[in-house]
Amino acid sequence: MDVMDLKITAELAKLALTEEETAKLSEEVARMLEYFSSMSEVDVTHLEPTNYVLQKENRTRIDSEKNESDIPDKILGNAPRREDRFIVIPNVL
């Protein structure tokens, strides 16, 4: 993988890499991808993917609400920055 490709990937992954990191990581990623290339030997035509291991069918939950009273405040307490009951970040626009 070249540096440009790594930059696009890093952008998708929301990682702000330094030039130094970019160079180092593109090498390491490339090595792993090369290692992955052995997978191309396998004839996968008649193979279904194993996206789910043993539980092959979903269950559903009964639609009842249960709010635990102190949890929202604990969660707000974990926010790095907040004002009243809002979590605050630098402007998105």
């Binding site: 004002e83 009951r85 809002f86 979590i87 605050v88 970040i89 630098p90 998105v92 626009l93």
Partner: peptide, 9 residues
């Protein structure tokens, strides 16, 4: 969005 920040709910 308000001023320099955004409020999240």
């Amino acid at each position: 969005h308000s001023g320099g920040v955004s409020f999240l709910d």
